[in-house]
Design a protein around this nucleic acid. Structure first.
Length: 423
RNA sequence: GGAGAAAUGGCAGAGUGGUCGAAUGCGGCAGUCUUGAAAACUGUUGAGGGUCACACCUCCGGGGGUUCGAAUCCCUCUUUCUCCGCCA
């Protein structure tokens, strides 16, 4: 959620920045400013009435104390009108606040100046690329064929017990999954991130805190009986751990990592691109989250990108990093880098990580603040990224590391797996 | 699931109808002392809205009510603790 005070002061800057998202935010920003003015003037009127009313109450109290009951009763009559007024004004204020709130919920975060113009993922800008795309042997296969050939993932079995998009991992496939999770967590904790295990269901307030609600209502599984949501990413429970906090500046940064399964309804997805591990309803992911001082969040984002690069370097997978364009940028994000691994057998890039800086957008909703060196309370900056999402990394390994003899496990994973080949 | 108790500032913890945004302690900040630090002592220190700045308003788990007036009384929800039951 954008900050009203900022919108008030820098409306033009905001309008220009938001235009990169290919939306015309001018009228929405104007509405926010009007709604805010209405809210403030309602508040001022109400405050005045309440101030009068407080004065009367104090006097009444004093009259009762001194035994001047008649005077007290006389004043009591006067307060009746004030009470009516305050009730009406309170209703006006509530309406104005709700109006303002709903307008603010409609405004996405402002893109960073480096965010490229563009509408779709085709307009994203590649900023880094590394690793050789291997020349595969004849008869090389896409990962879903390999999964079947080596009997390590059973998609049909998952369909039987749940539905499409819920694969069953088996034998060395299951072991490789566990190895990847451990390896990622070890890399993250070695880089200073504290490991957490968090709930996989969250309440509505948490959904609003990180911005999944109301924007992505339909993308989350909703357990209506208990009004809980299955998490679409660990970002939600991990970031919400700090909801409402007031920290001191020397507590920052706070850096967390956690493994969770992620659940996404993926309503509207279909076709060849969802085949195999490409798009699932349930998948595993290791996430990193940082709570940063505003002065440091830009650097922190770079650090996160560099950190993820080292993981992919070690895995020896061909990958690239993209800076997302305005049209592809998530609702809550200010600047996002996507990591993609090359799927050789499919001849396409697969997104395996998304690393973003949210500035105060989430913190404003979360009321996540810190006391700065100057003694002032300020909103913190939040960032997060996948480090990494499992299925497509697995797809990348299966496809890029396939040999006529079997799948050759990247060296760094061998100690975690306990085997060198899937054959 | 049943019975009882509780929820107060960064933390601990008093406060049962008005002068309470709230004692006290810890922590934080500033100062005195010290070569420096610690200790001790003194002062200061909740959050949000509002204002150029004041004033002023709101907030004692959430929501609603009683009252001229609520941290305090009533209703309700949530959470925590204790006891019982059940159980991975």
């Amino acid at each position: 959620m954008l900050e009203v005070a900022q919108i008030r002061e820098h409306k033009d800057v905001y309008a220009t920045a938001l235009s990169k998202r290919n939306i015309d935010a001018v009228s929405l920003l104007d509405q926010v400013i009007v709604a805010d003015e209405t809210r403030r003037s309602s508040q001022a009127k109400l405050d005045e009435v309440l101030a009068d009313s407080n004065k009367f109450s104090k006097k009444i109290g004093m009259f009762f104390k001194s035994g001047e009951v008649q005077k007290a009763n006389l004043l009591k009559e006067k307060t009746a009108g004030l009470k009516e007024q305050s009730k009406t004004l309170q209703e006006q204020l509530n309406a104005a606040s709700e109006e303002l709130q709903s307008l603010l919920y409609q405004l996405p975060n402002i893109p960073h100046e480096s965010v490229p113009e563009g509408n779709t993922d085709e307009d994203n800008v590649e900023v880094f690329r590394k690793g050789d795309i291997p020349a595969l042997h004849d008869g090389a296969q896409p990962h879903w064929e390999l999964a079947k050939k080596y009997d390590i993932i059973d998609f049909e079995l998952g369909t039987k017990i749940t539905g499409a998009g819920f694969p069953v991992f088996k034998g060395k496939g299951a072991r490789l999954q566990r190895a990847l999770i451990s390896y990622f967590l070890d890399k993250n904790t070695a880089a200073g991130y504290t490991e957490y295990q968090v709930p996989h269901l969250v309440n509505e307030t948490s959904g609003f805190g990180t911005g999944q609600l109301p924007d992505k209502e339909g993308q989350m599984y909703h357990v209506t009986e208990d009004d809980l949501y299955l998490i679409p990413t660990a970002e939600v429970p991990v970031t919400n751990m700090f909801r409402g906090d007031l920290r001191t500046h020397d507590e920052l940064p706070i850096t967390c990592t956690g493994y969770t399964p992620c659940f996404r309804r993926e309503a509207g997805s279909y076709g060849a691109h969802v085949r195999g591990l490409n798009r699932l309803h349930q998948f595993d992911k290791v996430e990193i989250v940082r709570i940063e001082h505003p002065d440091r969040s830009a650097i922190a984002l770079d650090e996160m990108v560099e950190h993820i690069k080292t993981i992919l370097d070690e895995l020896e997978l061909p990958y690239r990093v993209l800076r997302l364009c305005g049209g592809d940028l998530g609702f809550t994000a200010h600047l996002t880098y996507d990591f993609e691994v090359f799927s050789t057998a499919q001849d396409r890039w697969l997104e395996i990580s998304s690393v973003s800086n949210f500035l105060t957008f989430q913190a404003n909703r979360l009321k996540l603040r810190f006391k700065d060196a100057d003694g002032k309370n300020k909103l913190a900056h939040t960032l997060n990224g996948s480090s990494l999402a499992l299925p497509r990394v697995l797809a990348g390994i299966l496809e890029n590391c396939q040999t006529p003899e079997g799948i050759k496990i990247p060296k760094v994973l061998v100690p975690y797996c306990g085997f060198e080949m899937i054959d």
